[in-house]
Computed example of a mutant assay.
Amino acid sequence: MFAMSFSGQSRIDNVIDDINQSLEVILTTSKGARIADPEFGCNVWQRLDQPITALPLLIADVINAVNRYEQRITLNQVTPDISQAANGHIHIKLYYTYNNQSFEHVARITR
């Protein structure tokens, strides 16, 4: 039996929503933007201004940032879609595990 919250969502749904929001904040915050923690965030756009050969560095940046700042999950895979980067849009699909269950989240990042 699982517990329900007053909103009608299960507690796990609330936690997953919170994790997904945290992932969005991590990926949309540029490093150096937070004075108290200048390492917080991810340099997504800076990596995209580099040649396409830097795509593995973008993936590594995402993995490092998520592993450092969202420790409730195990990140299994990162798949960036940069096909719309020239139009100012990037989608990064994150596959992760929380509480022995698999989830995926697409972070939609707009410049």
Rank of each mutant, 00 (worst) to 15 (best):
T53N: 11
Y96D: 02
I35M: 13
A65Y: 05
T97M: 04
H89C: 10
R72P: 05
D61F: 00
I52H: 13
V62F: 02
I73L: 08
P38N: 10
V78S: 07
V66R: 00
N64F: 08
I90V: 15
A36G: 06
A60L: 11
C42R: 02
A65C: 09
N99A: 15
Y96M: 05
I35Q: 12
S83P: 04
N67S: 10
D49A: 13
L55M: 15
T74H: 07
I59K: 07
I63D: 07
T28I: 03
F40L: 06
Y95H: 15
A54C: 08
E70Y: 01
E70Q: 10
V78C: 09
G41W: 00
Y96K: 01
L27E: 00
N99W: 06
T97L: 06
D37P: 02
H89Q: 15
D81Q: 10
I26K: 04
L75E: 03
G88P: 03
I82Q: 04
A36D: 13
I63N: 08
N99D: 15
R34W: 07
G88S: 06
C42Y: 00
L55G: 02
V62G: 02
A86H: 11
I52T: 13
D37M: 07
Y98A: 03
N67A: 07
G41C: 03
R72C: 07
A65F: 06
K31F: 03
P51E: 04
Y95A: 15
T79F: 06
R72Y: 04
R47I: 09
F103Q: 02
P51R: 07
P56F: 11
I26Q: 02
N99I: 08
V78K: 03
T29W: 07
Q84I: 10
N43E: 12
